[in-house]
Design a protein around this nucleic acid. Sequence first.
RNA 1: GGCCCGGUCGCCUAGCGGUCUAGGGCGCUUCCCUUUCAAGGAAGAGGUCAUGGGUUCGAAUCCCAUCCGGGCUACCA
Length: 480
Amino acid sequence: MTVRVRFAPSPTGSLHIGSVRTTLYNYFFARRHGGTLVLRIEDTDQDRLVPGAIDSIYDGLHWLGLRWDEGPREGGPHAPYVQSERLPRYQQAARELVEGGAAYFCFCSKERLAALRAQQAAAKQITRYDRHCRTIPPAEAADRALREPHVVRLKVPDGGTIGVDDLVYGRVEWPIETIEDQVLLKSDGFPTYHLAVVVDDHVMGITHVFRGEDWLPSTPKHLLIYRAFGWEVPPLAHFPNVLGPDGRKLAKRHGATKVEQFRTDGYLPEAMVNYLSLIGWAPGTEEEVFSAEELVAKWRIEQVQKAGGKWDRDRLDWFDGVWIRRLSIDELLRRLDPLVPAEWDRALLRRALPFAQERAKTLVELRDQLAFLFGDVAYATDLLVPKGHDGAATADALGRSARALRGLARFAHDEIEPALRRTSDELGWKMRDSSHPVRVAVTGRHAGPPLFDALELLGRERTLERIDRARALLNGGGTR
RNA sequence: GGCCCGGUCGCCUAGCGGUCUAGGGCGCUUCCCUUUCAAGGAAGAGGUCAUGGGUUCGAAUCCCAUCCGGGCUACCA
């Protein structure tokens, strides 16, 4: 049997980190088994639609390097892949269930339902539908359904238990009495999630249903629906949630949770894929830096964790640094390009890149470290003064450095270094102290790329200008 | 409230009855390297494996209970 798996986001906002992790696992599984990957858009809740969400899903997934075989824009043998365009199928399915006696029309108003719930809650009872409409004779119900607003509910059997052998969680069972007569078709003619997934997974020939842990509690509803149709239940697996620092499901209030955000923050898709894969899965060996290709080869569902995993930004940062260092300079330049102002000279940027590559955790950091080459720098005057020295001495040191630099035959690393070392000796300062003010004057920061290379890249003229300006600052703002 | 799931260093995790005086990575500390910061190298702190009972010659690993945390409980997904 050929593997067919799907990922099924709802277009209710831009792509969330948690659904990316689930998507990744589906992707690894499909690729490893030479199977087919389906993208299905689950937009059965018309109230929660967010315009542009499908674009965002496509952008995010493409950016991460994921490819799939069937979907809304790719087409495929089971098109359409957007649930709102498949309404007749769900309606037909619901009708079959009603005709077969496995489901029934319900005419209860939302008000009655709300009142019922309130009453049950007040009496500390389980809040669930009281099956009020279940006793309406089918012929009468069918007749009323022609002109009254209604939903279709599943006839849930009375006793016993129902269970699955989840590929991650193992055997899980539920008492059937805890499950209410689930709404399958809403009064607006749209299916609920429960009906739509079951119908689509079956009709689209999905062989393995992999989804987030949140769905585990609704699984018995789905099992009952499969049973009502007389369909076989595919193997199911639920993946543990990605958690925020407080242990609750990762959400907006925890900070950035959208892939899009990480893209603009300068993270590499390689790092996102690598890091995300490791929340809830571990290879059992001690390596942990993996490309998507390696993950396809290594990922095993048996190794998926049951416990939720916390999102750890520091760890992501570390992975991002690792991946930044792995890129060639040309590739790095290519990745950086969209984050860098058009005016920045790409040739100079390329020359500078090797000096920043080892020092950045994100592309944005990389860009910021090199910004001094492309525009003016700003810093607090105090920053110029090294520990243990004062402003006047610093101004003097800067002056001597400038003089040494001015006299160089060639303004290049191999000449700059000895010149500045000589100045340092002359001053009787430690090299770290004498180079500090030059570094700040030129780059605006106390930390960054190696100084001699930084100066060479900036060029003599601008270097001297900036040193002069720093001296002026130290001497009280005037220019001497 | 009900149903379900989970619980190994701050975080991600290895571990599947003896090889565990519990291993690795992130983060943290210290040192080396060094023009800064990183990167790299070395060392270190940090876990009574939630707790309490069993089972067993032997338990992080099996069973039970408790506690704590989470998810779900909609004509949301």
